[in-house]
Design a protein around this nucleic acid. Structure first.
Length: 594
RNA sequence: GGACCCGUAGCAUAACUGGAUAGUGCACCUGACUACGAAUCAGGAGGUUAGGGGUUCGAAUCCCUUCGGGUCCA
């Protein structure tokens, strides 16, 4: 039984015995004890004081006394202003430590037989990936890893937005200004190559609007009349009519983009189980509309457009299909939801999509529920805030974005500079050194993007970039490398016994380390339940910090007793193991030295 | 016109979902390497949790309201 449960049951017994208060154990209010007080677990007595007819202070005292007398696991207690703080015997922690050492599957739940689908990234094929995508991607992959550790089978999918007017804009600009150049001929990464023409389109478009206004047109009219826009629209029409030349160009340009994306994904160390293309899925959903009309979930208006009325839920009426029979995003998303369920028969499906789509997903899920889809209750929108720059919002058309490839490169360069300054990696080959810089640079980036609550907008300052000190990826990586050095030495001294003699008592920092280690499985559960990588990030930071404190407070190899030395080596080893696992849940590697 | 999200020291963030004196990092000041790795550790300073009102043993958290920032729907 875990300590939490044990304490809940014991408190339950005490409340019944002393005050005849029957309170289900799992409803008792427990919380971690604050650092400045003795103990690890705190029971909040206020809610029960009235029923017991005692002051919170008295109630705490009596309960504490009861626990101390009846349960040998409880070492001592302390009541501060109605908060009952409980300290367990060192033996309890040592038993836990033994279990952790012996458990081969530590930090990995057994399969729960359920499948989760996670939709990640969903890029457009007209421009390179930027910082916003990175937040999406790292959040999505980390969430996937966490769900896997919590026992799910996870499928990572990506929907590529490869059709529509935005692609045609790049195509038009390329036709007019490309002069037959290619990524190869210009030595440019494919996605950047295509993105350039998207920006070019916008430049020309703006010039043309300016010219038209100068000729006396209203601004709104000018926006509609600009020749290059009309050209893009006619190209979209041609694409829909399957014009061979247009299709060929479209395929060619998309191919360039994909090869660029692949390279970026490789640097990020991510990959997908299945990729959907919108050019295939945008026709889906129309059948669903017909069925929905028959069953009365949808209604048809005079202009033949199809709507759903959600006003009784506090939402609006929402367009499902246009009067001319063409799709809107909602039509398509209904179709892909069904398709995805056919493909994976999932229990949970998570959409990692920015919070500007909060309303859209609320409506989508509601409609699927009304359509009686069996999977509807397993849908979840993992919504995240925008990434802001000091200069304001990122706008790809205006080129004010932080490019993913560029930022990764800069981070890796910074890591290299930093590492060379510190000069601690003698003996690494050039190849190992390069791998290390990547590990550190990407570690800093991934940690930065996953440690924050996804809901919040976040600020990214490219000038100050991302630090390597304090609450950062490299701080944790450093702790791991530090422990690795200890383990190497422990091995050399033959102190790395798998079955060390456990000490009779614990140094306080040893106790808190074991307590923290013991928390890890709970953190996975919480993180999986809430789809919150930040839970893991915060945990692993706390663990690394606690280890560094331990490291400063006690010595390992200067102890006189071999038993104690090997115990501390073993403790270090378990910390390293846990850091490694937690970091890999965030998609971050840890180095043996740095 | 309607709806949703956000506001915590100079900056960036946390608070176990209503619990203790609101934690932590950066930056700033002070100390610790002739000791297992100083990308570290120990300490200091910095807060009317945007403002006001309410709910209660207790509010950053829930309700009302004002202000500021952002988003969506037609």
């Amino acid at each position: 039984m875990n300590i939490d449960q044990f304490l809940r049951q014991s408190l339950n017994t005490a409340l019944v015995e002393l005050y005849h208060i029957k309170q289900p154990p799992d409803t008792l209010v427990l919380q971690p004890t604050r650092k400045e007080f003795e103990g690890t677990h705190t029971f909040v007595t206020f809610p029960y004081a009235k029923k017991a007819g005692k002051s919170p202070q008295e109630l705490g005292e009596s309960l504490g006394q009861y626990l101390e007398q009846h349960f040998p696991e409880v070492k001592s207690y302390q009541v501060v202003k109605g908060f009952l703080n409980i300290t367990f015997q060192d033996r309890v922690w040592l038993d836990k430590f033994r279990l952790i050492c012996d458990s081969e599957h530590w930090g990995k739940e057994a399969s729960n037989g359920k499948t989760a689908v996670v939709e990640i990234s969903s890029p457009n094929t007209n421009k390179p990936l930027h910082l916003g995508h990175m937040r999406n991607i790292f959040l999505g992959f980390s969430t996937s890893n966490i769900l896997e550790a919590a026992g799910f089978q996870v499928k990572k999918v990506c929907i590529v937005n490869d059709r529509g007017i935005h692609i045609c804009k790049s195509m038009v600009a390329y036709k007019n200004f490309g002069e037959g150049s290619t990524p190869e001929s210009t030595q440019t990464k494919g996605d950047h190559f295509v993105g350039r023409y998207y920006v070019k389109f916008d430049q020309v478009y703006k010039e043309q609007i300016g010219d038209l206004i100068a000729q006396g047109l209203e601004k709104d009219q000018a926006k509609l009349q600009a020749p290059i826009l009309k050209e893009a629209q006619s190209l979209l029409k041609k694409w829909e009519d399957q014009d061979p030349d247009t299709i060929a160009l479209w395929e060619q340009m998309n191919q360039w983009v994909y090869s660029g994306f692949d390279q970026t994904y490789q640097t990020m160390e991510v990959g997908f189980d299945k990729v959907y293309y919108e050019s295939n899925t945008y026709v889906l959903g129309k059948d669903i509309v017909n069925v929905g009309l028959e069953t009365g979930v949808f209604l048809k208006k005079e202009d033949q457009s199809v709507w759903v009325d959600l006003t009784d839920e506090g939402l609006d009426e929402k367009l499902i299909l246009r009067g001319d029979g063409t799709s809107v995003y909602m039509t398509q998303d209904l179709g892909t939801a069904d398709l995805r369920f056919e493909d994976f028969n999932f229990d949970t499906s998570i959409y990692v999509v920015g919070n500007e789509q909060d309303y859209h997903f609320k409506v989508l899920f509601k409609i699927l529920e009304r359509l009686g889809r069996p999977y509807a209750k397993g849908l979840y929108h993992l919504s995240y805030g925008m990434v802001d720059l000091p200069s304001g919002k990122m706008k790809s058309r205006e080129g004010t974005v932080v490019d993913a490839d560029q930022i990764m490169e800069e981070m890796i360069d910074t890591a290299e500079k930093h590492t060379l300054e510190l000069g601690k990696i003698e003996g690494l080959s050039e190849q190992e050194a390069q791998a290390l810089y990547k590990t550190l640079g990407l570690g800093a980036l991934k940690y930065f993007l996953t440690k924050v609550d996804p809901k919040k907008r976040m600020m990214f300052n490219p000038e100050e970039s991302i630090a390597f000190q304090g609450d950062t990826g490299p701080f944790i990586q450093y702790t791991y490398a530090r422990i690795s050095a200890i383990l190497r030495k422990g091995q050399a001294l033959a102190l790395d016994s798998i079955d060390p003699v456990l000490p009779k008592s614990l140094h306080p920092s040893e106790g808190s380390l074991i307590h923290l280690l013991n928390e890890y499985p709970h953190k996975i559960t919480t993180a999986a339940k809430e789809y919150a990588p930040s839970v893991i990030a915060q945990y692993v930071y706390e663990l690394a910090k606690e280890y560094n404190r331990f490291y400063a407070e006690v010595s390992i190899f200067n102890e006189s007793s071999d038993d104690l030395k090997s115990f501390r080596v073993q403790l270090s080893k378990q910390v390293a193991r846990t850091i490694n696992m937690a970091m890999s849940l965030l998609g971050i590697n840890v180095p043996e030295r740095m």
